[in-house]
Simulated scan of single mutants.
Amino acid sequence: MDELKSMAVSQNTTLVAFAFLYADCQNTEYRKEIISLEEICKPVQDINCNGDWVDPGRDGDLETDGHLSMPIPPIDIEPIVNVQWPGNHDVAGNIQQVAGELRQIAELIEHRIVAQATRNLKKNISSSPSEDWKSLLSAEVERVMRQGVGLEYLPQERVLIALTLTLVKGVCEQAPRFLRNLFSAAVQFINPVSTW
């Protein structure tokens, strides 16, 4: 049972990270790279093991209880095109809500701190002969968290995740070719922290 819970948390982490990174992407190359990540975010089965995922290419079938078979994302959060959300409306809504909350926290983190941390991370990744980007990412996040971001009144788990995803987005908007590996490193880093 713990393995199923771990798989569910891992999948939710991936979907939340994807939703966070996808929102408001202006850079054309970055947008292409983020859309290419769609395959990573496509699960094979519902995290609750209740059945198959809904095919977003369909218009949605009307079920016998009168509900559409596709989840409808909340209006106030930009929907993600072509992402297969879990068939469970509550899970899909929760994933988008968490991503939205993380974006709000990211907006509160001082721009100067994020800009410097983004430059540091990009420089370290660019000059790193190895591909241990998870270590580079976690070191930079931990450095910024020790320095303080001025959001002590918020749950620190969420601040850490928002900062991590903000750094990933900042680096990848400047160097979109890093997205796939840095996305993977970020999901590995925040997965043990997250408790969706």
Rank of each mutant, 00 (worst) to 15 (best):
A19H: 10
N48S: 01
M7L: 15
F18M: 08
V98G: 00
I113C: 01
D90T: 13
T118H: 05
R177Y: 09
V168S: 02
F20K: 01
I34D: 09
N50G: 13
W53L: 04
S6P: 06
H89F: 15
C41K: 13
P86Q: 13
R31S: 13
S126E: 15
I105A: 06
A117D: 03
L182K: 08
I34W: 07
D76M: 06
L121Q: 03
E63R: 14
W53R: 02
T14I: 14
E157D: 08
E101K: 06
G93L: 01
S10T: 13
C41W: 12
N50A: 14
L137S: 01
V9P: 00
A19C: 15
L108T: 10
I190Q: 04
G170E: 11
N27R: 11
F20I: 02
R143T: 14
M145P: 00
P176Y: 08
V44R: 10
H89V: 12
D59H: 14
C172K: 03
Q96G: 12
Q84L: 09
P71D: 07
R103K: 15
P86H: 11
A17F: 05
H89W: 14
G100A: 04
C49P: 00
P129Y: 13
F183W: 03
W85D: 00
L4E: 07
I125H: 02
L4M: 08
E63A: 11
L4A: 12
V149Q: 07
T164I: 01
V91N: 14
E140D: 09
D24M: 04
L154I: 02
Q97Y: 07
I109N: 03
I72Y: 04
R146S: 06
I80F: 04
I77F: 11
P74C: 06
S36P: 01
D52P: 05
L62M: 13
V81I: 12
G60V: 07
A8R: 15
R31G: 01
Q96M: 15
P71L: 07
